[in-house]
Structure formats: C-alpha cells, structure tokens
Amino acid sequence: MSVVEQYARARVLTGADLPDEEDGGAVPVVLRYDPEDDPRSVRIGLPGRGSREWTLPRALLEQGLRMPAGTGEVRVWPCGRVQAVVEFHSAQGCSMVQFETKTLLRFLTRTYQAATAATAAEPVAR
C-alpha cells in the first residue's frame, strides 16, 4: 500500500509551543496518510519543541474546508476563499495554523487515490 506524505508550509497564527519564524510565521508541516495504519485518518506533523503530530479524521479535514468542523482537540474551518485554519488544543495550549486550501485539497485527493489503489490491490476472497 502507498503511504502519502506531503510537505507544506503553513502560517502559524497562534501557538506558544511552535517556533517563531522570520517569514511571517511560516513553518514546515508534514501531511501524512497511511491507509494500512488507519484508512480513515490523516496526520499533521508540526515543528517545535518536541515536534507534535496530530491525528484527525480525514472526513473532518475535508468538511472543514467547506464549513467549520470539529470539537475537542482539533477544529478546522475555511478562512476566506483560499485558506483554511486548523486549530489544535492540548494541555500546553492552543495552536492555530493557516494553510492554503489548495494544499489541503491536493493532499486529500492523493489520499483518496491511495485508498482506492489499496482497495483495488486487496485479494478477492473465494
């Protein structure tokens, strides 16, 4: 099965546990999908002290690009026509990270292609 890993730059809006960057808060982020590990979830890896990785339902990320979605530790919502915000809550506080919507859409498209390929490659039980 094919793991999808996409590197992106995102803008940090808030978050004491994330590094301050000179270029307006832009940080490198890793978007990851492993259909063998969990076909319904994606992971977002954030830099900073201890590098934090968040797992969230793929459907939540997709829904959040159209309308506010999520409760609890992860929330996603559109921010204008070309950006989306992902908000992460932890014991250390809240971090809000802004992505270009097209980056997240490209990633989601690749995850669905990988999931389809993985399903097609499964042997047929007789």
Results as ranks from 00 to 15, higher is better:
43 R>P: 01
1 M>N: 06
39 P>M: 08
126 R>W: 15
52 R>M: 09
103 T>Q: 08
3 V>L: 13
22 E>H: 04
59 A>K: 15
16 A>Y: 06
52 R>F: 07
50 G>R: 11
118 A>N: 10
92 Q>K: 06
71 T>A: 15
43 R>E: 13
106 R>E: 12
33 Y>C: 07
95 S>K: 12
45 G>Y: 01
83 Q>A: 15
25 G>E: 04
87 E>W: 05
47 P>N: 01
28 P>C: 01
34 D>T: 01
64 G>E: 03
70 G>S: 03
108 L>E: 07
102 K>L: 10
3 V>D: 06
109 T>D: 14
65 L>K: 04
121 A>N: 11
31 L>N: 06
57 P>A: 15
78 P>C: 08
77 W>H: 14
86 V>M: 05
41 S>H: 00
75 R>K: 08
9 R>S: 04
30 V>A: 15
58 R>F: 09
104 L>A: 10
116 T>M: 14
34 D>N: 03
105 L>H: 10
54 W>I: 13
100 E>Y: 08
51 S>K: 15
105 L>F: 03
42 V>S: 03
8 A>Y: 07
6 Q>P: 00
15 G>N: 01
98 Q>W: 11
32 R>H: 02
3 V>S: 07
29 V>W: 04
27 V>H: 03
69 A>Q: 11
123 P>F: 14
113 Q>K: 08
93 G>M: 10
2 S>Q: 12
31 L>F: 05
38 D>P: 04
44 I>V: 15
